[in-house]
Design a protein around this nucleic acid. Structure first.
Lengths: 242, 242
DNA sequence: CGGTCGATTGACACCTTTCAATACGGGTGG
DNA sequence: CCACCCGTATTGAAAGGTGTCAATCGACCG
């Protein structure tokens, strides 16, 4: 039984721009169904030309890219509210893969309806571009982190970003939030080796800055973690929800 | 004397999606002027809320982001045909800075006209989103390079990409193209130190794979360079020109 | 209970960074 | 016209952060 957009749980988060009744009506029509998948299930593969687009409704996943040398770069983590497949929608095919890390529920949209959206809903079209710009912004920050920060700073940056996003989504209870990834995933996101990632996490635990174990991330003093990362600790910018 | 869109020199390149007469007519109205600047001149600053958007018409520049620790990450190089300022256009303010590396000529657009574009030119709006997706794709590749490739591979990747782009734009003559950057710029783009960048370039010269001196990049065998980078050597995807 | 996957640890090798010094060309003021 | 300064490019040597290799451990599963 699909969730009605009108009652979409994501709309409770202040992270997203509010929908007008008209927006909701349109999305209700744009949405063609719901998809529930298990951890490890691929959603979109690089090179694929999927006829469908998604919005993560529940659960978490990751976007990644494989290189010829066998190494993997995780581009970012997929959280509830993230739009998946825009690249395929406008460029023709995906340039990276997406897969679920926890159980996920996805809203499914028909790619063919995209053109209709641009023609009849300029505001929604604008929002799509906005979403693309938000992604671009985040990738830029990630690039700066991987390129210019050391392992400890980078990890602190990543965990801070994750915690911030988790808070905005209401996933944090008692300074803890679910984080259903493997250390290898974070390693591949930050361009670090698995071993070094493990040791870096151990240090953060020793320093009592962040404790990530058994899929649960606990951060007592987010400000302190952000300071270690030498990052601007600004509130997340609002973003549209498709 | 501003260049008429109809006679835009960029339209000769096969890199860009062709304009319909209607497109050209619209762009002619959307374009409010032309800007010529000297090397080193900033175009947009991080945090700025510029009322203007640009398309690079001639010359080259770079986008970058400064970190609190004083280090700089170059996000990508700006080549003719690149659109500048989309982030400010949709998100409100720039998340990175842009400056000229060579003398540049920019087409200037009025940000206020953006909304009109979305409302009355769905096809152009679609192209804007397309452009954002192209940027996202490139940033993803850069992230993968900085995160997962060694210095030599990374440099080979960068020079290959540059040469490819240069070829598509008709900037390559006799296997050589202008590349008006400092070694520090490439270093900041790849997350390498200046010294190591210098030594890596020296090795590429020794191996006769790439020779970049005095603002001129010479590559005799692009295939060979791409092989060293272990990259997929696919032709650049077409992109829209605003 | 053997087998697999993810997390941990210790030791060591090595790629990059940092530190320093020199070289070279262009611009400027004496 | 030349000395001087500054930005960029080069090089050598040493320090250090990360990666790789290997082995162990705990949890889960058929």
């Amino acid at each position: 039984m699909a969730t009605a957009c009108e009652h979409c749980p994501l709309r409770r988060s202040k992270l997203f721009v509010e929908h007008s009744p008209d927006d909701t009506r349109f999305m209700e029509r744009f949405k063609v169904g719901e998809l529930t998948i298990n951890p490890g299930t691929p959603v979109l593969m690089e090179g694929s030309n999927s006829p469908q687009l998604f919005t993560a409704l529940r659960g978490m996943g990751l976007r990644y890219k494989m290189l010829q040398n066998g190494r993997r770069q995780v581009l970012n983590l997929v959280f509830p509210g993230d739009f998946i497949g825009l690249q395929a929608g406008v460029m023709g095919e995906m340039q990276h893969s997406v897969e679920a890390s926890s159980a996920m529920t996805l809203c499914v949209f028909d790619r063919a309806g995209l053109w209709n959206l641009f023609r009849s809903q300029p505001e929604r079209a604008f929002n799509l571009t906005w979403l693309a710009a938000v992604e671009e912004h985040f990738l830029g920050e990630s690039l700066a982190t991987v390129g210019q920060r050391g392992a400890m700073e980078a990890m602190a940056w990543a965990l801070t970003k994750i915690m911030q996003r988790g808070e905005a989504l209401g996933m944090v209870e008692n300074r803890a939030m679910p984080l259903p990834y493997r250390q290898q995933d974070l390693a591949d996101a930050l361009g670090l080796s698995l071993v070094h990632t493990n040791k870096t996490l151990a240090k953060l635990r020793d320093r009592q800055l962040a404790n990530w174990r058994d899929g649960l991330l606990i951060v007592n003093d987010l400000k302190e973690l952000a300071k270690l990362a030498e990052m601007d600790f600004a509130p997340l910018p609002k973003r549209p929800l498709m």
